[in-house]
Design a protein around this nucleic acid. Structure first.
Length: 507
DNA sequence: ACTTGGATAAACAAGT
DNA sequence: TACTTGTTTATCCAAG
């Protein structure tokens, strides 16, 4: 991230050398700039932190189904910060314009607003300086038409040229009676705020007190540097925000999206929140409709959040796998890529995972260490906090009767007593109108069997909210189909080599 | 309000 | 001694 301190000492020295200001004036100027820069820096620090939070949540909740209020809240806050940054930048631009220096800065600032690259800016800067020197030689009486034309032409290409109230333009503004430096009877020149009864007296004041001089020039130069930095930062932050929004919204429509969970229920049924309990901000209520509201402002984004992309932070521990183990098997296999690339807790109970690990092995038996390996191999999530989940694995192995310890020559292995396992999992598959609606929206795609089977889950009413419509369901279905067709289904037959470690998550 | 199931933490013992 | 494996107990939380 570029900081306002990116103005090099050399640049600053150059700026200062080109003006004839008193040290007090210079100090005041710099203080003003520093205050603004500090303000923006703080904002951006906060913005950055929030982005990290958001990223963390996205990673950890990829499998949660409900759109997370926390996530969208942070998104909304980030957008608000963007607005603030923009506002600060506009303030800078306005300050620049208020200098009333030349028509050149007008072109420059409006060009800056379009995201000028440093090289261009340097060129403009040079031209500005040249123009100014030329003007000085001419006794500061006539502008430099060629330069002005060039630069104005440049600015006119962007279609966003804001009419800037340069000193020379102010006479035109007189006709209209509207002057950006004159508002509500007050002179809006920075630090002035003089009150005038009529526009004429304001103009006199403007021409006498805020004439083109070295002070204004110096202010403009400092401001231009600041604006440059702000523009760059804003562009970067905007880009980041766009990427975030795109990540949250349009994944299912992208030609080759990052790995996404295939099974809808993986997203509907939430794994327990992985955010530490010490995070009080995560205790927000879960709303399926609220998150979409701050996000619909971007026209290129769908107005509906597709639940494959948003994840709730709610501490809901319900895992569908214990009821629908077949769906779980398919989920793990089909989402192998996803689990390997996203540090997301799988929405399965430890017992279900252990069983899956054991059943995937050729001998249907694994040592504890092999179970550990399966966890870390299959889920990126379990490559962290080993002490916690390993303890849980051992705890589950001991606790549940469905796991039978068998003494072996090499040691002890664990097997699954499927009968016992089925005992503790009452199969209660009941259809609901909502499920049928969703299924009809998805069409009778045979590849969605996992989805359909797993759909029959109590958490489905989430989709009854306004956050998901038929169009997004269709998009989801196509995304699911695409994803599923890219997977081979014959893996997982070996306990130790079915899956390979993914070095770096793609997220 | 109560029960149940799951996650988590931790104490403890036995074995390596 | 340090670590692993396995058992057990307790607590918290969400869901039914």
């Amino acid at each position: 991230m570029i900081t306002p301190q990116a103005i090099t000492p050399q640049q600053m020295q150059q700026i200062l050398q080109q003006q004839v200001l008193s040290p007090q004036q210079l100090q005041l100027l710099l203080q003003q700039q520093q205050a603004l820069m500090l303000q923006q820096q703080q904002l951006q620090e906060f913005y950055k932190k929030q982005q990290e939070d958001l990223h963390l949540q996205l990673l950890q909740q990829r499998h949660a189904g409900k759109p997370s209020k926390e996530v969208t809240q942070i998104m909304a806050q980030q957008m608000a910060i963007q607005q603030q940054l923009l506002s600060i930048q506009q303030q800078h631009l306005l300050n620049l314009q208020r200098q009333g220096l030349l028509s050149v800065p007008s072109a420059l600032t409006s060009t800056l607003a379009q995201g000028l690259i440093p090289a261009e800016l340097q060129q403009l800067w040079k031209e500005t300086a040249d123009a100014r020197q030329e003007e000085k030689r001419r006794g500061d009486k006539s502008p430099s038409p060629p330069k002005t034309q060039i630069l104005n032409h440049h600015s006119s290409t962007n279609g966003h040229h804001v009419h800037r109230p340069s000193r020379r333009d102010s006479h035109k503004n007189k006709v209209h009676g509207a002057h950006p430096l004159y508002s509500h009877g007050v002179c809006k020149w920075p630090g002035c705020d003089a009150v005038f009864g009529d526009f004429q007296s304001f103009l006199k004041h403007l021409n006498s007190e805020h004439a083109l001089d070295d002070k204004s020039t110096a202010q403009c130069r400092v401001q231009m540097q600041v604006v440059q930095q702000l523009e760059l930062q804003l562009a970067k932050d905007k880009e980041r925000l766009q990427a975030m929004m795109a990540h949250l919204h349009v994944k299912s429509t992208e030609p080759k999206p990052a790995p996404q969970p295939v099974n809808l229920v993986s997203n509907l049924t939430l794994a327990k929140a992985t955010i530490p309990k010490t995070s009080p901000s995560m205790s927000l209520s879960q709303s399926a409709t609220a998150p979409s509201t701050p996000l619909t402002s971007l026209p290129q984004m769908p107005s509906v959040i597709i639940p494959t992309s948003l994840h709730s932070m709610g501490p809901i521990r319900k895992r569908y796998s214990d009821k629908y183990n077949i769906a779980m098997d398919q989920d793990i296999v089909q989402n192998k890529e996803f689990y390997l690339s996203a540090e997301v807790r799988p929405p399965f109970t430890y017992a279900a995972l252990i069983r899956q690990a054991i059943l995937e092995s050729p001998e249907k038996q694994l040592t504890l260490n092999e179970i550990y390996n399966w966890f870390t191999r299959t889920f990126v999530y379990f490559r962290r906090n080993a002490a916690t989940w390993k303890n849980a694995v051992r705890h589950n192995l001991s606790l549940h009767k469905c796991f039978v310890r068998v003494e072996n020559v090499k040691g002890a292995v664990w097997t699954v007593d499927e009968l016992e396992f089925q005992k503790r999992r009452p199969q209660k598959i009941t259809g609901s109108p909502l499920v049928k609606n969703i299924q009809s929206s998805l069409g009778q795609n045979p590849t969605l069997s996992s989805l359909q089977a797993a759909m029959v889950d109590s958490s489905l009413p989430l989709y009854g909210s306004a956050s998901m419509g038929a169009s997004s369901l269709k998009a989801l279905a196509s995304a699911l189909h695409e994803d599923m067709s890219s997977h081979d289904h014959d893996e997982g037959s070996h306990s130790d080599s079915s899956l390979e470690l993914s070095p770096v998550p793609t997220l």
